[in-house]
Design a protein around this nucleic acid. Structure first.
Length: 480
RNA sequence: CGGGACGUGGCGCAGCUUGGUAGCGCGGUUGCUUUGGGAGCAAUAGGUCGCAGGUUCAAAUCCUGUCGUCCCGACCA
């Protein structure tokens, strides 16, 4: 698909899917790897991921955690130690059976997540209440052998961070799980400009081995939900499986209370699907690899020399505060560059030609509104741009929030729900008191699942399915 | 694993029905002219048509098999 064709589209599911793939390939965030289901994160996409990482890593450290690294290969027997966990993950594990030209005595699994190996190590490190809490995080790759893959959203191998903690009390672990969910909310909303619903997962959607799973859930531009991050209260499940025990202040032997939490490169997919339009990406200024791109305009060689010198000076003046790129490629016209950078989602573009230089002004073009602001004074440009970037950050967040509000519908009956989900994807808000079986049936009939049970509920109503009184209001939606 | 589509220069595709010396657009290279919303002209390089068999005087094209990718479902961050 060409870039021009990208701007067209018939609005179908398959068309949106193609838009997503083509936007990522053409904006050079990623490319397909030779192994099915695997992708290469290209420099532009990796720079975006690094900016997300940087922001989150600081939050993780500011909340008292330390980074560490655990091995990728895990003895197969480890996985079997926690019943729910093995049932959840065994089917999607890659297994190493040979090494050094010989068959291994015990196969090794490539981590699908690191609870088992980390908790095995925790058991060695914890004896006394004085050893707790352990507040640990790792940035790593994991492998899950998925049936069906999609760039960033679901690949066989993906990058993420996984936090693992062990605590002396249930309350402390619970507080930790909620604290980290809150960091994820901040990351999504303040950095990625993606409004999220926070809450708990139903039993059916819970992490394999967790007591409770909390999540942030975002709405994409097609009305589908995307789970953008999860934080699990693990209770003592893994502590019992791996014998993480400690003596408390009274000398009693106790099992530790634990959490784990993670977000992945899926967040890049969330940005693409949460903000993008028919012209391509729209990146949130705070994490955009390039915040401002300068496009020079000139006719003659003399003008070129003048314009380039001027552009370089502006670039170095802005460079301290803003991530600026000067597009000095000779082989493309300004028009080509306008479109090129728009597709890459760069928030702000400066067009600078001889006329602007003569008047000591620049022309500013916004990616989010595609609006042009002519005759902006060069004096004080850095402040002007900083303000504009903030404004864009807020604007795309508000757009996404408005979109979600517009596409969230309250229903009282199953018929109503089927009707609203019949022709489009929306968030369906409703009281629900059913069980996992009910959820399964609803999924079969509508393709929608319970995405989240939002926090802080104080209303009561009747379950749309069973009619029973309940205070549990949930969000149903089709999801990625 | 079921359903669908597709493998032809770097990329996107046509050619296949009806076998007969592999073509188009974009991109690349060189030169000149251009440059405020996807530049023009000219010259030039680049492909054993996914792979393996088979049919035939002759296969991108027909037959058999095989491998791979994408899309839609079941499974999931």
């Amino acid at each position: 698909m060409s870039i021009e064709e990208l701007e067209e589209g018939d609005g179908t599911e398959s068309d949106r899917s193609k838009w997503y793939t083509d936007t990522i390939l053409q904006s050079e965030l990623a490319d397909y790897a030779p192994v099915k289901g695997c992708m290469v994160i290209r420099p532009y996409g990796y720079a975006l991921w690094e900016n997300i990482q940087k922001a989150l890593d600081k939050m993780i450290k500011d909340t008292g955690h330390q980074n560490a690294y655990f091995p990728m290969l895990i003895p197969e027997s480890f996985l079997n130690k926690e019943k729910q966990h093995v049932e959840g993950f065994a089917p999607e594990c890659a297994v190493v059976t040979h090494g050094g030209g010989k068959k291994l005595e015990e196969p090794l699994i490539v981590r699908p997540t690191s609870e088992t190996i980390i908790n095995f190590m925790f058991a060695k490190w914890v004896q006394s209440w004085r050893d707790l809490p352990i507040l640990c995080n790792q940035w790593a790759n994991v492998v899950r052998w998925e049936m069906r893959t999609r760039l960033f959203l679901r690949t066989l191998e993906f990058l993420w961070q996984e936090g693992h903690t062990a605590h002396a009390t249930e309350q402390e672990a619970e507080t930790e799980a909620k604290l980290m969910l809150e960091q994820y909310r901040i990351l999504a909303e303040d950095w990625l400009a993606l409004p999220v619903l926070t809450g708990e997962k139903t039993e059916r959607e819970r992490f394999a081995g967790a007591v409770r799973t909390y999540c942030i859930e975002a709405m994409m531009r097609d009305g589908k939900a995307l789970q953008a991050g999860t934080s699990h209260f693990l209770g003592q499940n893994f502590a019992k499986a791996f014998e993480i025990t400690f003596q408390d202040k009274d000398g009693n032997l106790e099992f530790a209370w634990q959490t784990s939490w993670g977000v992945s490169t899926r967040l890049v997919g969330a940005i693409v699907l949460g903000h993008g339009d028919d012209k391509g990406l729209i990146l949130p200024p705070k994490v955009a690899p390039i915040q401002v791109v300068i496009v020079p305009i000139f006719k003659t060689e003399e003008e070129k020399a003048l314009v380039y010198e001027h552009c370089n000076r502006i670039k170095s003046e802005l460079g301290d505060q803003i991530r600026v790129h000067f597009d000095d490629r000779d082989q493309h016209t300004p028009g080509f560059k306008f479109n090129y950078w728009e597709q890459k989602g760069v928030p702000v573009r400066l067009n600078i030609g001889p006329k602007d230089i003569a008047n000591e002004v620049v022309e500013i073009a916004r990616r989010d509104t595609r609006e042009k602001i002519r005759g902006v004074r060069q004096a004080g440009l850095a402040n002007e741009l900083s303000g504009l970037l903030d404004q864009i950050q807020k604007n795309i967040f508000n757009n996404a929030l408005e979109f979600r509000k517009k596409n969230t519908v309250s229903v009282k009956t199953y018929d109503e729900m089927k009707k609203v989900l019949a022709d489009k994807n929306v968030f369906v808000e409703t009281f629900f008191d059913g069980n996992g079986e009910d959820e399964g049936r609803i999924k079969d009939e509508t393709k929608a699942t319970v995405r989240v049970i939002p926090f802080d509920q104080n209303e009561e109503g009747e379950c749309f399915l069973t009619g029973r009184k309940t205070s549990r209001k949930v969000i149903f939606a089709r999801s990625y």
